[in-house]
Design a protein around this nucleic acid. Structure first.
Lengths: 354, 354
DNA sequence: TTGTACGCGTTATCAG
DNA sequence: CTGATAACGCGTACAA
């Protein structure tokens, strides 16, 4: 209807340069051999006519496309947009482009997006899988010869490279540090939703990073002698109101609970605001630690202590792995763990003793 | 080399369904007519075999691709990532996907990216042009039949739809409000770089939104009787150190300067932190207003007053316009202005009188 | 070194 | 309604 692309083809250039289509294709496609004379003639003709190669047709011929599909949970979240930047920069340096998609952390959308991307015949896929237990669509991609790298999450059954943070270790590290300060009852707040609003079985947590962290949380808390640590995991902090409700529930259990762990920067922002609104002073009245070093972590008073997840690097590494696979690396899939150190700033204080 | 995609074709499905390739293509491509019987046979065969259409080949045949190219200044910036989300959601609802690119606000990269996207034969382009004076590459795309919509910025010579905020008006609105509070000397801080670190001629500012805002700033300040308002525009706040330096220069002119306007949320964060570090209290010691309502604007004490740029809507509108053009809308190009109201929170106070 | 001719997977035309 | 068959633009054996 609308697309009346009058784009020129190699044939047009060939005619103008008075050589065969094949010769023109060879110099324009930078493959095969051509005499210096033919070469110049073609290049000049192309320049004169303003020829633009058609990568669509090229991909169809060669079977490979210069496009990589990226599926993240939410591009609006700085965690992912930073990772995408890392991916983008690395990919571009290798002459690849990226198609980006949002799964909204919903399996159905992720499946749909994988299908769309596969139809576009992307060269590879970088995905933050929403549910490590349902990766058949990714496995199918892999089987069909499209390399896959998972970002921030790991799906063991998938058999793909994965780039992750130190989810399990970091939570242990943070808790031990807090325990040094005398904290025993620490709340973990996550956006994850469950049917009944209670933490269910760990195996039912689809996002591996979330599962690892909660699992590590429970282990470390038990080790420290807390009898029922599952009671300290608060789920469903998905929006402003929900987070407010969670904070209310936490404060009802104050002064037993003396510290809060926010599983991402959005949650942390809401918790922080809620605490301030209620007149609490940090870290005297409450200790707060978050995952991800958001750009605002150092503009609050006090500054937020965070587990630094360098997601730009996550993205970089994931792209590097994908490129390696694209180049034929057939080594067994590996998990690449990016260090996520605790950046201690102003929101960690001694536990408030009664 | 690596791409051994063994994907099935319509021919395979046709064989399995015992019909001709043409018939299979018709039902799979959902065009033309086919009998109910043939239809079922083909669909079942496709299901059984696990056929996945090849959108590359489809695009090559039809001439149109379901891909839209998006070029932003920096995907890491929440301003743009939010806009991208709006674009993505709207596009997807229309069955389109997006290829995203970063220009890093550099003309050369923008030109390169446009070229790459055009080679991919994208259906259309949504661009935040880095330099309104150099848009020949975009004009060429337009001329070749690829619709273009500019995001957040306007390039009059281009002749494309544009979606912008009320840059000029919002700065006037903010200044009048501050003037009510007795502020006369207001500093405007921007990341824009100039050769000599001084504000040059307005026509030399490439990013239209920046130009409009500074132009409005100068006008409104002059109207209020400030003799040399160009001295109040501080450029080059590109990073942490640079912004620190700017704040130092501003404070040297305190108490003459009683208020600061930050042209984006990154700058605002740095300015805010710098002011706090120096022990200043807002809004008593300084008034601060920023553009863009970042997610952290309400976690500081006091909360930041901002000019709210709903960039998700920017993106939505831009995508809508592009879709309309794709559908054949040939009306003259228009500028769509999205309201950007001042959200007054805690950082506006009366001017500190000596 | 250059040119011919065919294939990639679709869509689309045009007889049957 | 259906089935050959020709595009689409480019890569590439194979032959000249």
């Amino acid at each position: 209807m609308s697309g009346k692309k009058n784009s020129l083809t190699v044939a047009d250039v060939a005619r103008e340069a008075k050589v065969s289509k094949a010769t023109a294709a060879r110099v324009l496609g930078e493959y095969g051999i051509a005499s210096e004379g033919a070469r110049k003639a073609v290049l000049e003709a192309a320049e004169r006519l303003g020829y633009q190669p058609n990568d669509l047709a090229r991909s169809m011929s060669t079977g490979r496309s210069g496009l990589v599909g990226v599926i993240v949970g939410d591009i609006e979240n700085a965690f992912f947009s930073q990772a995408v930047r890392g991916i983008s920069d690395t990919l571009r340096a290798a002459g690849l482009n990226l198609i980006i998609s949002n799964s909204s952390e919903q399996l159905s959308e992720e499946i749909e997006m994988v299908s769309v991307l596969l139809r576009q015949r992307v060269a590879g896929l970088i995905v933050a899988p929403t549910d490590a237990r349902h990766v058949d669509h990714l496995k199918a991609a892999l089987a069909a010869g499209t390399p896959v790298v998972t970002l921030d999450r790991h799906a063991p059954q998938l058999g793909a490279d994965a780039v992750c943070g130190e989810d399990r270790q970091s939570v242990g590290r943070v808790l031990r540090r807090l325990q040094e300060e005398g904290h025993r009852h620490v709340a973990y707040v996550t956006a994850m939703k469950t049917r009944d609003g209670k933490l269910g079985r760990l195996e039912e947590i689809g996002i591996s990073a979330v599962r690892e962290r909660i699992s590590g949380f429970l282990t470390q808390m038990r080790e420290a002698g807390v009898e029922d640590p599952a009671d300290l995991v608060f789920v469903g902090a998905t929006g402003d109101d929900e987070t407010t409700a969670v904070v209310t529930r936490i404060l009802k259990r104050s002064p037993t609970i003396t510290a809060i762990l926010a599983s991402d920067s959005l949650i942390c922002a809401r918790v922080f605001r809620e605490l301030s609104d209620r007149g609490l002073t940090l870290p005297q009245d409450m200790t707060l630690v978050s995952w991800f070093d958001a750009d605002w972590s150092r503009v609050t008073t006090p500054r937020i202590s965070v587990v630094d997840q360098p997601t730009y690097q996550f993205g970089q590494k994931a792209a590097e792995r994908l490129i390696a696979r694209l180049k034929g690396d057939a080594s067994p899939p590996r998990v690449y763990v990016i260090p996520t150190p605790l950046l201690e700033r102003g929101t960690i204080g001694p536990a408030k003793t009664e």
